[in-house]
């Protein structure tokens, strides 16, 4: 009788009804449609466009093969813009982390006025980058800007290649310091107080506790913030557009701004698409490196 039972149950499993087969896909559909429409289709379209020269309507007109890529790689301004982008990303990622860590450590203990300090450190979250850039434009004016008046100097902060990139990086660090502060503060509160207690009993001082309890305890948060900072640094746009337009020369021509210029100013979507594909590859590599590092240095 056991065999007949098996015979009865098995066909039911093989011949599922149509609805049973479709059910999981129906649940997946909303996500797939949205990803397909807004992620995969534009992605494929970008790769397609990067192989063409486009006309003034932005339509693919002349097949150019890898011509867009070779002309980008032969263009010294692309390599300069790549160098500048990496310098900028390092400045913003490291700067944002240091500022976020310092501000959250400063507000970790209770003292009068700590709420006010916390609110001030978190405030940049609420500031639009374009508005901040406009304000900084006035502060950084070469002859009558606030900064030059305070320092008694006459420096063209945004017009001198020695200062332009650090200035943009400083502004970006300040803009992202709010979100860094909030996440790292939350991370600090998540470290069990027993660890500090037992470290104190063992006779550890402030710095010993900082390096052996705080930092390892924060490592998941810090790892997350590094990724977020790097992504934000790559996406920085309005600071550059408003303060320098990529200048002087190429010294603040971040790759995202270069893509914008090609696509929406010069109306050459082909080159812009090719630049986007290159940027995609770069970010892919960075992310892979980050995740391989995560396994080694992050303690959960």
């Amino acid at each position: 009788m056991t065999t007949s039972k098996a015979l009865r149950t098995r066909p039911r499993r093989i011949h599922q009804t149509f609805w049973e087969k479709m059910e999981p896909y129906v649940f997946l559909a909303p996500a797939l449609i949205i990803f397909g429409l807004f992620l995969y289709y534009p992605f494929i379209r970008t790769i397609y466009l990067s192989l063409f020269l486009t006309d003034k309507y932005g339509m693919a007109k002349v097949f150019w093969g890898i011509g867009n890529y070779t002309s980008i790689f032969n263009d010294p301004s692309f390599w300069r813009s790549l160098t500048v982008t990496f310098e900028f990303v390092v400045m913003v990622a490291v700067g944002g982390l240091v500022v976020g860590l310092c501000t959250s450590l400063l507000t970790a203990t209770k003292y009068p006025g700590v709420t006010f300090c916390s609110a001030s450190y978190a405030m940049p979250v609420a500031i639009a980058s374009a508005a901040a850039s406009m304000a900084f434009r006035m502060i950084l004016h070469p002859t009558n800007g606030l900064l030059n008046i305070l320092l008694g100097t006459q420096i063209g902060w945004t017009g001198d290649q020695r200062f332009a990139l650090p200035v943009i990086a400083f502004l970006t660090v300040w803009l992202t310091s709010g979100i860094n502060f909030i996440f790292i503060s939350a991370g600090l509160r998540g470290i069990p107080p027993e660890l500090y207690e037992s470290a104190s009993i063992d006779g550890a001082g402030y710095w010993r506790k900082f390096f052996h309890v705080t930092l390892p305890g924060l490592s998941p948060t810090l790892f997350f913030q590094v990724i977020i900072n790097i992504i934000q640094a790559f996406q920085s746009f309005s600071q550059v557009k408003i303060l320098t337009e990529g200048g002087p020369g190429d010294s603040t021509n971040l790759i995202v701004y270069a893509i914008y210029r090609d696509a929406f100013f010069n109306y050459r979507f082909g080159t812009a698409a090719a630049r986007s594909v290159i940027l995609f590859v770069i970010i892919l590599i960075i992310t892979l490196v980050q995740f391989s590092m995560e396994k080694r240095s992050v303690n959960y």
Binding site: R137, P142, T143, N144, G159, E245
Partner: peptide, 13 residues
């Protein structure tokens, strides 16, 4: 002295 791209900074100077 260099007054940046565009005209806004020159005008304000």
């Amino acid at each position: 002295t260099y007054l940046n791209r565009g005209n806004d900074d020159a005008k304000s100077a």
